[in-house]
């Protein structure tokens, strides 16, 4: 019985990172990151700017190349093999701080681009699915507008819809609310909250501690390219072990 659940856990490990290193020229950005993520887990990564947290989640879909260590995503190893990279990218959705919507395409076209050109879905089917997803993120009425006509919060929800349209197994969020005006943060967090509850595996770089407390299974505190501390939200918030974590939390929670 115990062995069975152990086995199940191993099968459930959707992301495995072992001793991941990354250099930008001489700058050692990631200094040996270990992380195993189980299916359905929500991981919140936080830390000071320049600590390597964005770089780390960008290595998981190869927007940044790691130079040492191993990364396995859904059983596929990230290597130089472009086929592996493309296979992983179509399993991993990503949402960026600056939204990065395609400004020359309508909202609907932004969302259907991947399904039509990567998944080879017929246009009608892709459109129908896109409308369902836009419904889910609460902006079906904006389908035919262009990104520049939407508010920041709406744009970020389109970006989430665009990622979801590929039916990813994992979603990466790189500071999804940092570029938003305060009154729009909630609408994006609500969508992410709903997504987390639906069982999506999520890696979220954010300083929204309310979100972390609400849905994170684990939190990772990054500093200087290392995971300084990790643990459940309660442990991190109530009894952080490391001085740096305490200091950082006191700085961001002051207000």
């Amino acid at each position: 019985m115990a062995a069975d659940s152990e086995q199940l856990q191993n099968d459930d490990q959707i992301i495995i990172c072992r001793q991941v290193h990354k250099w930008f020229d001489d700058f050692h950005a990631l200094r040996g990151i270990d992380l195993t993520v189980k299916t359905g887990e929500v991981i919140v990564i936080f830390g000071p700017s320049g600590s390597g947290k964005s770089t780390f989640i960008r290595t998981i879909n190869r927007l940044e190349e790691h130079q040492k260590g191993d990364i396995f995503v859904d059983g596929i190893e990230l290597t130089h093999d472009i086929r592996n990279i493309e296979a992983i990218r179509s399993e991993v959705g990503m949402v960026f701080q600056q939204f990065n919507l395609f400004p020359h395409l309508s909202v609907l076209q932004n969302v259907t681009l991947g399904p039509i050109w990567v998944r080879r879905l017929p246009k009608q089917e892709a459109d129908d699915k896109a409308m369902e997803i836009l419904e889910r993120v609460g902006i079906p009425e904006q389908a035919n507008k262009y990104p520049a006509q939407l508010s920041g919060g709406q744009q970020q929800r389109v970006a989430i819809a665009r990622a979801l349209a590929m039916e990813p197994k994992i979603m990466l969020f790189d500071e999804p609310t940092s570029a938003l005006d305060p009154e729009m943060i909630k609408e994006v967090l609500d969508v992410m909250h709903e997504l987390a509850l639906s069982g999506m595996t999520m890696l979220v770089v954010t300083h929204e501690m309310g979100f972390a407390r609400g849905v994170a299974d684990r939190m990772l505190f990054f500093d200087e390219g290392l995971v300084v501390e990790r643990g459940a939200p309660d442990e991190i918030f109530l009894e952080p072990k490391e001085e740096r974590t305490k200091l950082f939390l006191s700085q961001i929670l002051q207000h």
Partner: peptide, 8 residues
């Protein structure tokens, strides 16, 4: 980045 991330 965005184009790569959706697998293009």
């Amino acid at each position: 980045d965005a184009a790569k991330a959706i697998g293009l």
